[in-house]
Design a protein around this nucleic acid. Structure first.
Lengths: 291, 291
DNA sequence: CGTCATTACGGAATGCGTAATGATA
DNA sequence: TATCATTACGCATTCCGTAATGACG
């Protein structure tokens, strides 16, 4: 197979149609240039140039190869450029995991920041539950996760991304919807509360349990569900009340009224950014620096 | 700039993720392979692989470069293949000149043959008058011309392509349209004949002059025109009769009747293929062999 | 006979292979 | 301690540059 140097030489000769001038342009003497071209022709088994002593002309095959050679050289230069951009974090690919609920709070901001910070990078989004995100981070198939706070290994790094309020989600016509201003935790005493699953939505489950225990309030846990939008669907059907992160209020339901709730911690719902400490994706670190 | 050999080495290592195995695949020993990869990384200024003594992993930049490297190698192989096809006449580009009139007789056949003979070649068609075709053949911007017989230089080769009848083109309602069967030359005596220009359409001009002189017939030369379709337009308007190559009958005019003419030579209109003797376009010669 | 590509030849650099070293699990 | 990448070193090849040759207008 030929050499990139041979291609460079050939392009120079093809453009100058003059070995001596081409050699000058290549900052070499003319004999080795002649040899290179001859070598290239031997490698290809094709005559590229017709030389008489007073003129150098391209053969049809030479014309065709000139186009190819230029293409290969351009692609090579682009490759060198592109790989440097990836290595410095200017370009590349960042795979970001998110949970459905987080999409409404943080994801928009994150993507906007990414577009500014690493405009040349490709952002790949994957909707995954927290547990799957942690697994994907571990095997390097995910660069960055958006998860609810949870126990993570020592090789994962975590950073709080946003904090949100909890809102009461009430079916239209429910007694509490008539109340002026914010609700209090005590208002939920004895209410049918649509509760988060202790396994699938452990973070919210424990958050609510803790809030109610602290306030000595005991609602009626009618259903356990893992996803916020499932809970809202049930509220919409009048099957109970719920506490959901404020981002969920972006989802419009015909028969749900959202009301603020007074809590000891005003914004108790956290969302974390998480990534592998040893992740060597430079684009990821460029993005993290801008967050 | 890097080398294609380095790219080949890198692809092997990236695929095996193991220097020793990659070296075996490349039929070389492992140390020079290590050096090549290191050299490639130095050239690029980018780390492509993370080596621990027990594992070789691609960095994100390495992943990006692997794709680029495969692309460059593939393009290089394709280029070598393509240029060989051009040199053997399997592929390439053939520029063919034609006159408007010839388009209807020969061009279809020619293109069909070309598609069979050199399916990989690009056929470029250029409508040019005979004189321009000869000039273009001389400076190599045309590979093949379709022209009326004319004086050509010694470095041009010519081959008869087709012979055609001459047809009488009569305006609808003209007295001769009533005649049964073929016309005779004598029928044109005293007729208003739309004549070919002696300079722009020399071949037809001299052909007709010769035919009428031989038959001792003298029509009235009312107009001199250079192009067949101009002549037919005037016939269509009733401004005279004309003699045109049979291919012209393919052009449908509302008010023209075509009739055969008895001539001493049944098919006096010739169309030639012409090309430069020294044309080094292999695709052209492949095509000519099939014609 | 002058221009310009090719051939001839000597020296430097590149690149492979073998052997030794070093690092990590 | 075994595996596997890197470093060390010697040799063959490649490739450049200078000089000589040759071919075409």
């Amino acid at each position: 197979m030929f050499t990139l140097a041979q291609l460079t030489s050939f392009v120079a000769v093809a453009e100058e149609l003059h070995f001596t001038r081409a050699a000058e342009r290549l900052r070499m003497t003319q004999p080795p240039l002649s040899r290179q071209i001859r070598q290239l022709e031997n490698d290809l088994g094709v005559q590229l140039l017709n030389r008489t002593n007073k003129s150098v002309r391209l053969t049809p095959a030479g014309r065709a190869f000139l186009i190819e050679a230029r293409g290969i050289l351009r692609q090579s230069e682009n490759a060198a450029l592109a790989v440097r951009q990836v290595s410095t974090g200017e370009a590349g690919s960042i795979t970001i995991g998110f949970t459905a609920a987080s999409a409404h709070s943080m994801l928009g901001t994150l993507l906007r920041t990414a577009r500014e910070a690493v405009p040349l990078a490709e952002i790949v989004l994957r909707e995954m539950v927290t547990r799957d995100q942690l697994a994907a981070l571990a095997d390097n198939s995910l660069d960055l996760g958006l998860i609810r706070p949870s126990v993570t290994g020592p090789d994962l790094r975590t950073r709080p991304a946003v904090r949100e309020q909890l809102l009461a989600a009430l079916p239209a016509g429910h007694a509490l919807t008539a109340r002026e201003g914010a609700l209090r935790i005590a208002d939920f005493h004895g209410q049918e509360l649509l509760m988060y699953s202790p396994t699938e939505a452990r973070y919210f489950h424990e958050l609510l349990i803790s809030i109610f225990r602290t306030a000595h309030v005991t609602p009626v846990y009618s259903q356990y569900l893992s996803q916020v939008h499932s809970i809202l669907a049930l509220v919409n059907w009048g099957l109970g009340v719920a506490l959901v992160p404020e981002a969920a209020a972006q989802l419009r339901y015909a028969d749900i009224v959202f009301k603020p709730v007074e809590l000891p911690i005003p914004e108790p719902v956290e969302l974390d950014l998480v990534w592998r400490r040893n992740n060597d994706n430079p684009a990821l670190h460029t993005l993290l620096r801008h967050l």
